[in-house]
Design a protein around this nucleic acid. Structure first.
Length: 722
DNA sequence: TTGTTCCAGCTTTTT
DNA sequence: GCTGGAACAA
């Protein structure tokens, strides 16, 4: 392939980015502007034109999916195998480095990776052991404290409590947590990043080695990097000016989990030689949709500034539907999908996007009764399922008996007569002796202090693990997994469950054996670790797909966050109401509000041809009827880009809202739900309901401009208009 | 050990 | 208003 072929299919800005001289580059890539394309072609350029070996290229992404796609596209483009190229997630690459340099990183060779669920379990147990009030110190709170400190690059010993009671306790938990992880040979997700950062920072030789090796470093979704990830990139490219980052400040929607958009500014300061290129031509959406997105995001103050454009025509207007309530909203969406289905089979092109997962239920119900196949993204993924995690815990324990969380998980699962009392004694001994549960269990047996029954049960558990480990030793990976499933008692247990769930679990276990069979482990000469250990790490680092295969005939339901990076011909953006989107928690915080707006921008730019936006006038939330204002984002999209699908006629509010309340209030009250009223100060409004009697009588009115209010009827100056 | 009841909490998610 | 988890009882 010659050089022109690499550039031919690109537009001017893309071409500039791909063929730029080898210095630091910041590519601000708008939604649908061919970001991955540029990244892939840039890497191809490096290999093809600048003759870099794939070996000297590093490309970092956030998700496994993105990493896989990038490698695949490079290989297709260049028709080479890029297996020597390092393409992976931040965590995946950190894991790889730690495996290679475990000793220098002060980790055991067999260290394992914990997922967030494992981490939470460790913290829960730790808090129990310390006998602190779980109401006051919630495990989740502790977890997020620890993770956010690590993401800022801070160890417990680097933090001061300043006499602060809260901080003092948190630091105690943090220290204990580090201790348990160390003893069990476990590393959590943020630890992977921090540990690698420290490894390179403290080992000049290693750092120099990787700085020399990676002649080009590429980062996808740069706006999502957190402090420690950026610090790591800085180390790796220090004084080299060879960092190529692609991102979009307007699509930064993960600030709440530590992402720092400011890293874009930091980049510009730290790499003064850098060049900025904006990709603004959009190949996805029609003109109207892009204009809406542009005008919406222009309401944000904190942005670098970008204007998307297309030369593919204006397309259809955006449709706006005002629903009576959330039921009506779901009804409308599904009716619309039904119409499309009658016109032709279009289901895989349709997505319903919402702010929070709880909103999916109504759409699911409607789709179900309409007989339309759908798929909800989110929820538990394969390697996160309880039966899978139980099996993995046995496998981990076989590999490393001092893995306390795994020990806890399966010592009495399936039940084998080891009660709480025995377990407590083991825990106590472990704590006082500062040793693993496994060692403590053995010690306890030697003390002969247990009852005969407990002793037998415990002994047989230890023997089980040992014999599983020995028997498995010579077997191929999938046979090891199979052995555990069959001999741990898990299979028998799940087979006994006669309901669907039991069946599904058995199927999942079979699938796990299959996954093990198909697992081909990336074995480099230095990575002499056992296949099993790598498989277990893989299970933590890649929890498995949760999406339907490409092009399958499903309507797709997902949160706005999940939709980032995807595109659909027809998009429903639902629930655009103040308090829902933007969410209640963001309403009074300008920064969070801007993030919500970016989220809305992400949603709008998912649509290729048709965008439907809806909101409801009344919505049941947490068992309470709410009358939310339409989202401010609706006002921020120019009205000439939108068409109302139905004329708003609030008088014909459906009976469901008005009926019961109205019937009740009829007895004593003159006001009825649905009546138009006028207030001297608040203006026009619609009566929603009344409550109480006599001087205590209150009335709830939804005012056109002022929103929903409760008024004391005795004082309210209301005129009935209808 | 299992079932029941009570109670808090309630965006967003990848690794 | 529902759900998941924990505490408690049998």
């Amino acid at each position: 392939m010659d050089v022109t072929a690499l550039l031919d299919t690109l537009n001017d800005a893309q071409r500039q980015a791909v063929s730029a001289p080898p210095h630091a580059m910041l590519i601000l890539a708008g939604a649908g502007s061919g970001k991955t394309r540029v990244l892939v072609h840039r890497i191809a350029w490096k290999i093809q034109v600048e003759k870099l070996s794939p070996h000297s290229i590093l490309a970092v992404t956030f998700t496994n999916k993105a990493a896989l796609e990038m490698r695949g596209r490079i290989e297709t483009l260049l028709q080479i195998s890029a297996s020597s190229m390092w393409v992976g997630t931040f965590h995946g690459i950190a894991h790889r480095l730690l495996r290679r340099h475990a000793t220098q990183a002060n980790l055991p060779e067999t260290f394992q990776v914990m997922d967030s669920d494992d981490q939470l379990r460790v913290i829960k147990r730790l808090l129990k052991a310390l006998e602190v009030d779980e109401k006051k110190w919630s495990p989740r709170q502790v977890q997020s404290f620890i993770n956010s400190q690590k993401e800022e690059g801070l160890r417990a010993k680097q933090l001061a409590d300043n006499g602060d009671f809260y901080q003092k306790n948190m630091l105690r938990f943090y220290r204990d947590y580090e201790e348990i992880c160390h003893r069990s040979g476990l590393v959590d997700f943020s630890e992977l990043l921090l540990r690698v950062y420290e490894l390179l920072r403290d080992n000049a030789d290693l750092l120099a080695h990787y700085q020399t090796r990676f002649r080009q470093v590429h980062v996808d979704e740069f706006q999502d990097t957190n402090t420690i990830q950026y610090a790591w990139l800085r180390l790796l490219t220090d004084g080299k000016d060879n960092l190529f980052v692609v991102g979009d400040d307007d699509q930064s929607i993960y600030g709440w989990r530590g992402a720092k958009v400011e890293n874009i500014q930091r980049f510009q300061k730290h790499y003064p030689q850098h060049q900025v290129i904006k990709l603004e031509q959009n190949y996805r959406s029609t003109g109207h949709i892009l204009n809406a997105a542009n005008d919406l995001i222009a309401h944000n103050e904190q942005r670098m500034g970008k204007q998307l454009w297309t030369n593919s025509g204006q397309g259809e207007l955006i449709s706006l539907y005002t629903a009576f309530n959330e039921q009506d909203e779901a009804y409308f969406v599904v009716e619309q999908i039904k119409k499309w289905r009658e016109e032709g089979d279009l289901k895989q092109d349709v997505a319903i996007l919402y702010r929070s997962n709880a909103q999916s239920r109504l759409f699911e119900e409607r789709l179900m009764s309409a007989g339309i196949a759908y798929r909800v993204y989110g929820g538990l993924r394969f390697f996160e399922r309880a039966e899978i995690k139980n099996t993995l815990a046995y496998l981990r324990l076989m590999l490393n008996q001092h893995d306390d969380p795994s020990f806890e998980r399966v010592i009495n699962f399936p039940t084998r007569g080891i009660g709480l009392k025995t377990l407590d004694e083991i825990r106590l001994l472990a704590r006082t002796q500062q040793q693993s549960l496994w060692r403590s269990a053995i010690a306890l047996l030697q003390q002969n202090s247990l009852s005969a029954r407990a002793e037998n049960a415990l002994k047989s558990f230890l023997v089980l693990i040992k014999s599983l480990a020995d028997t498995a030793e010579p077997l191929p990976l999938h046979e090891k997994v199979k052995l555990v499933i069959e001999h741990s008692g898990l299979l028998a247990l799940y087979k006994k469950e006669t309901d669907n769930q039991g069946e599904a679990r058995v199927e999942n276990l079979e699938e796990l054996v299959n996954a093990a069979r198909l697992f081909d482990y990336p074995m480099e000469s230095e990575e002499k670790l056992s296949e099993l250990a790598l498989f277990l790490a893989h299970a933590s680092l890649e929890a498995g797909e949760m999406q339907a295969g490409e092009g399958e005939n499903y309507v797709q339901l997902m949160t706005l966050h999940t939709s980032k990076g995807l595109e659909f011909k027809k998009v429903f953006l639902v629930g655009l109401e103040e308090g829902l989107f933007p969410s209640e928690q963001s309403l009074y915080n300008p920064e969070r509000l801007e993030e919500e707006r970016r989220l809305c921008y992400v949603g709008v730019t998912r649509a290729m041809q048709q965008l439907f936006i809806s909101h409801a006038e009344s919505r049941r939330l947490y068992g309470q009827e709410n009358y939310p204002q339409p989202s401010r984002f609706l006002r921020e999209i120019p009205s000439e880009l939108m068409q109302d699908i139905r004329i708003r006629t609030p008088i014909t509010r459906p009976a469901t809202v008005a009926r019961t309340k109205a019937a009740d209030s009829l007895k004593t009250n003159t006001y009825k739900a649905g009546q138009k009223v006028s207030h001297t100060k608040f203006g026009l409004g619609i009566v929603l309901q009344t409550e109480g009697e006599g001087t205590q009588e209150k009335i709830q009115v939804n005012f056109k401009t002022e929103g929903m209010k409760w008024l004391m009827l005795a004082y309210a100056k209301l005129d009935i208009l209808s």
